[in-house]
Amino acid sequence: MSTIGDGSSYIAGDLATWLEDKQMEHVRGAPNHPQTQGKIERWHQTPKNRILLENHYLPGALEAAIETFVDHYNHQRAHESLGSVTPADVYFDRAKAILAERRRIKADTIRQRRLLNRTQAA
């Protein structure tokens, strides 16, 4: 096991290596403060509420359902907290371009509506 950070917090060597390769840091919640775990607990609740509604009888069916959910969550489902883009859009640095394009489309639409309203009022 490898030690990451201060104190007696340990994580598996493989995880430590993977995190280092991805230039990520292992972050832990504050001890005796369960509310700091709220985001991850909420995330765990989301797939449970969807995936566990179905029965998975075949080997690998549950794993496939989880994989499908995670793909949908990361690549298809827009997240309000991220400005209505996907986590993949943020991770792959596409969010700024997507949001700029949305602003451009909105401004063009408003301009066109104003022009139409002026011509109809005249």
Rank of each mutant, 00 (worst) to 15 (best):
K96V: 15
Q45I: 05
V70I: 15
A65Y: 01
S8N: 12
N55R: 15
T46K: 06
L62K: 01
V70Y: 01
D108G: 03
Q35C: 12
A30E: 13
D93M: 08
E80P: 00
G83Q: 02
D93C: 09
H79D: 00
E20M: 06
A107G: 00
E25V: 14
D108N: 14
N74G: 00
I98W: 03
N74P: 02
R42I: 02
R118N: 14
S9Y: 13
G7D: 04
V70D: 04
L115D: 11
T36Y: 08
H79L: 07
L62Y: 08
V85M: 01
G7K: 04
A121P: 00
R113E: 13
A61S: 15
I105F: 01
G38E: 05
M24A: 15
E101P: 00
I40Y: 05
N117S: 13
I110M: 07
A97I: 05
D21P: 00
F92Q: 09
A95V: 06
E54V: 09
H44W: 15
I98M: 03
L53Y: 00
N74D: 04
R50T: 11
L15N: 04
I51W: 04
R114I: 10
T109L: 14
A61T: 01
K39F: 15
A97P: 00
E41F: 07
Y57K: 10
A122R: 14
T86L: 04
L62I: 06
P47Q: 05
S9V: 13
R103T: 12
V27G: 00
S84G: 00
Q35Y: 11
E101T: 07
R94A: 05
I40S: 03
H56V: 04
E63R: 11
S84F: 13
R113M: 14
A12I: 05
F69N: 01
K22C: 14
R28T: 12
H56P: 02
G7Q: 05
A30N: 12
G83M: 03
R77D: 02
N49K: 12
Q37K: 14
K96F: 07
T46P: 01
W43L: 15
P34H: 10
R42F: 03
A122C: 11
D71C: 06
R113T: 11
L99M: 10
Q76S: 05
H26R: 08
N49V: 04
Q35G: 06
K48T: 11
H33F: 06
T119R: 15
P87C: 07
Q37A: 09
L15R: 06
E67W: 06
E54N: 13
P87H: 03
R104C: 03
K48P: 02
P34E: 08
E20N: 11
A78D: 02
I105S: 09
M24N: 08
P47F: 09
R28E: 07
S9I: 14
L99V: 05
K106F: 11
Q37I: 07
T119D: 09
E54H: 14
I4R: 08
Y91P: 00
L99N: 01
G5R: 03
R111L: 12
